[in-house]
Design a protein around this nucleic acid. Structure first.
Lengths: 348, 348
DNA sequence: AGCCGTACAGCAAGCGCTTTCTATGTATAC
DNA sequence: GTATACATAGAAAGCGCTTGCTGTACGGCT
């Protein structure tokens, strides 16, 4: 049926071992022999059997990238950067690796299942991007799984995710808390005292940390937070729209709205506009992440830029063993406050 | 070292064959035996060896999804939809499949290499999303590869991509030409006679078809196109910004700018605004795709909505054999004109 | 001339699983 | 009580590749 190594060997009049060595280039083969083999490969249109090769060599060229939402550029940008470093086709690394992006959709079970699937495939490395889900049992299960993967020789890198202690996983963590704090301090500095906050989904580290940063800023400036000022939602535009309406209903005196991320902020802008409020004259808005479209909002969004591409690339290099892990296996990646038109001094 | 099937068998006091059968559930096994096996699996924390299994069974649970740019929501949305239907973890389908998203970055060689890699892994199905690259030799090479894949039993589905004749691949094609034409006719209907066009990268079917649609509309209304009115660029915002500046330089009298996609249109809006022009009062702008952020532009973008998620889901179902292929193996997916604030009657 | 190091090539033993075929025990039928 | 079917478990032969080890031939060395 399909062409096998043996067929190629027969055609080139050599042993299967030699063909394998030519293909892998990890053992000296005389030039003339090599040419003969290559010619046979070409003529027969031979394609290596991946599973067989992986089985025999006890290694695989799969690298897994887990993302919460592949349709969200936040993850897309990171995944793309990781992938570009993985070497994949076109990358500079030697071995060709198949970078596979797995979409968990923010469902805990899926995250776990994908990890098992990757473990099954004996993946060479796994990169987990974005915030972690904080459900007690789930977190522990993931940690256990990560430890197993590491023990089995898979390199595990967390990108934009808090460290997973005692698992052997390398972490490149985003300073969401610091970023959240900076953002709110910027608004407070402008004179805002009544700030609404649209948080992301609960039970997510990213959500929690950004919110904690926000509250730390309020506390540091002696502003007591009114419980009506914060709502939870999803990380998308519509959620931002609805949450803003709700916030406005609860307290029409708000002078600023801080959103969990840029998409949410865009939704907030739309809601404010539809409510007849001007940005930033009536209400200031701030986002988080600085995704490409944020600068195109009108007015452009004040936000915290996270170096997604850089972090992803670094995670990729570490996963490939092409860059050393940071000391202690943990590095913190800071965001940069981008002050733009959507934030201004409060009215009145 | 690692736990194998044999270890589980030993622990459960059964033969490896039985363990395999319990795990695959494709052969009768007495309930008591099954429980014993499952218990052993659990206690030993056994994880099936994917490659070995794939080798022995001569099948794999990998499904490949090729995208041009994973950081672009256009692809992210389709990929996510495909994946959700693939069954992956959480999907409804039976077997758990590993949906792997491969990012070609619009590089022809990478596309080919990824296809080979997937062929190597004996992928169960492959979905190619988005426009095809039109370089003579490359196209032929891809067609050959696709045919080989189909022959080897891999289901190949093209989503948002023109059909690949004689390959056995199923195609769900976007009517880019029709969409482009509708859009331009809308503008012509408003009274525009001098329309700039920012096309995508050359040698791409999507680019070509949208442009052809645009030109067909012009021709149908007896408008002769000035060669200065169109430029090629990338499918991103910055490209749209620069191209718009260039267009304005070439002909300041333009009253409308049609962009290759929404990101480009956003860049165009920014450029117009920075040039002191109002939208749509001075210049109308139109995009293509209707990505989620397009409605948030100010004014909201007039564009052509492509049912990305629906098409992706359908492609996924077809790839899984859960839905019949369209008659003839080809289906055309139409876009819907979304008229919004960014287009209006020309000035003067 | 004899010895040894080097450069290649082949043999053959698996890698860990699936699956066909066979064996065994038990239930059903006559 | 013997024959027949059925349900279940095991033995074993691969799946297609990699790689440690074992030749073999050749050139250079003393």
């Amino acid at each position: 049926m399909t062409v096998t190594l043996a067929d190629v060997a027969a055609r080139a009049q050599v042993s299967p071992a030699t063909v394998s060595r030519v293909l892998n280039g990890n053992y000296p083969v005389a030039a003339t022999t090599r040419d003969r083999v290559l010619k046979a490969v070409d003529e027969l249109d031979y394609v290596l059997n991946g599973p067989a090769s992986a089985l025999a060599a006890a290694t695989s060229d799969l690298v897994g990238i887990l993302v919460n939402d592949i349709a969200d550029p936040f993850f897309g940008i990171m995944a793309g950067a990781v992938q570009s470093e993985i070497g994949g086709p076109g990358g500079r690394a030697g071995g060709e690796r198949l970078a596979v992006v797995c979409n968990t959709g923010g469902v805990p079970e899926r995250e776990l299942t994908y990890l098992t699937l990757l473990q099954r495939q004996r993946a060479a490395a796994v990169v987990l991007t974005g915030g972690a889900m904080e459900y007690g049992a789930h977190q522990a299960a993931v940690a256990t799984k990560l430890r197993k993967l590491v023990e089995a020789g898979t390199r595990v890198v967390l990108c934009g995710r808090p460290p997973a202690p005692d698992t052997g996983a390398i972490a490149l963590t985003f300073d969401n808390r610091g970023g959240g704090r900076q953002l709110t301090e910027h608004l407070i500095g402008l004179g805002h005292r009544r700030l609404g906050y649209i948080a992301g989904p609960e039970e997510r580290t990213t959500t929690r940390h950004r919110l904690e940063g926000h509250r730390a800023a309020l506390a540091a400036h002696g502003i007591e937070e009114d419980p009506r000022w914060s709502v939870h939602g999803r990380y998308d535009r519509q959620s931002g729209y609805e949450a803003t309406l709700e916030l406005l209903r609860r307290d029409p005196e708000l002078t600023a709205v801080v959103a969990a991320n840029d998409s949410v902020a865009l939704g907030a802008c739309a809601a404010l506009r539809d409510s007849g409020l001007r940005i930033p004259d009536d209400v200031s808005v701030a986002g988080f992440d600085d995704l490409p479209f944020s600068i195109d909002a009108v007015p452009a969004l004040t936000t915290v830029r996270l170096p997604l591409a850089e972090a992803g690339a670094r995670a990729g290099r570490i996963a490939m063993g092409r860059e050393d892990a940071p000391p202690g296996g943990i590095a913190t990646v800071r965001g940069e406050l981008m002050v733009r038109g959507s934030s201004g001094v409060p009215r009145g």
